[in-house]
């Protein structure tokens, strides 16, 4: 105990004598005042002790060195990362759909162009060889006229579709930035978790990874990450042919 916590001090002896004197001469008011002072001294000590304990508790938590960080991770950054990744899905989905729509609108245009060109080419060659009567030639020139008009419109549409496909690729820039941020977050969570595990005194063996169920669907294999996977279609074919396929 520190000196100022000691009970037997000259001041306290004086206060006790004072209290006794007050009681003996029947001075109730005086006795109450001395008692009040004594309890005030007592309370001050109590508060000091509580303050000290609180400080010690706070210091103990601070030695974790990450109390705020973990709270922030759990409260803000992880839900935030979830919304960011959902946005990545939205952006890639949108880009894929825009591209597919442009392609689906272009394919029939190309098919028509190709069909008409082949057909007209064959007729045109017959015309050059003078192997065509005047009625058929009239029909041919009308078709050539229409073909040239259709071509001009078709090529304009194709050009627009190609621009749409080009523009739809703008997701790549945005999604890679978002994903990079999430990678940083995952790294941060990882190092915090490792520290927490170390604090509990458990051994951290980062080399040992729990093996997943081989048959359960696990999604796309990532090169250099997944074990026991084939590297591509050729290996699938090899494996299947070794099974008698």
């Amino acid at each position: 105990m520190l000196d100022d916590n000691q009970l037997i001090t000259d001041d306290n002896v004086a206060r006790a004598k004072d209290l006794l004197a007050c009681l003996e001469r029947g001075d109730e008011q005086g006795a109450r005042e001395v008692l009040d002072e004594l309890s005030r001294i007592r309370e001050t000590e109590l508060y000091k002790e509580m303050g000290k304990l609180t400080r010690e508790l706070h210091d103990a938590i601070s030695t974790f060195g990450m109390d705020h960080e973990i709270v922030n991770l759990a409260k803000d950054e992880i839900p935030d990362a979830r919304s960011r990744l959902r946005y990545v899905i939205e952006l890639t989905d949108d880009a894929a759909n825009k591209t597919l729509t442009a392609v689906e609108s272009s394919i029939p245009l190309c098919d028509n162009l190709s069909k008409d060109s082949t057909d007209l080419n064959e007729k045109w060659k017959r015309f050059i060889k003078r192997d065509m009567d005047v009625n058929e030639f009239r029909e041919l020139s009308a078709r050539i006229d229409k073909f040239l008009e259709d071509n001009s419109a078709g090529v304009t549409t194709l050009r627009t579709n190609l621009s749409d496909i080009l523009l739809a690729q703008d997701f790549q820039d945005l999604t890679s930035q978002i994903i990079k941020r999430v990678i940083d977050l995952v790294q941060n969570v990882e190092s915090n978790l490792v520290n927490l595990v170390k604090l509990t005194g458990a051994k951290v063996d980062l080399g040992e990874v729990q093996k997943g169920d081989g048959i359960k669907a696990t999604g796309p294999a990532v090169p250099g990450v997944d074990q026991g996977v084939v590297s591509g279609q050729d290996e699938v074919d090899e494996l299947l042919s070794s099974l008698g396929f």
């Binding site: 081989g214 048959i215 696990t218 294999a221 997944d226 026991g228 084939v230 279609q233 699938v236 494996l239």
Partner: peptide, 23 residues
């Protein structure tokens, strides 16, 4: 499919798949 673990391909073969293409 994007599933390309060897045991998955073997399982599909045993289940009677006619062809297996990886994405």
């Amino acid at each position: 499919t994007a599933e390309q673990k060897r045991e998955q391909i073997v399982e599909a073969a045993e289940a009677g798949v006619n062809g297996y293409i990886v994405k």
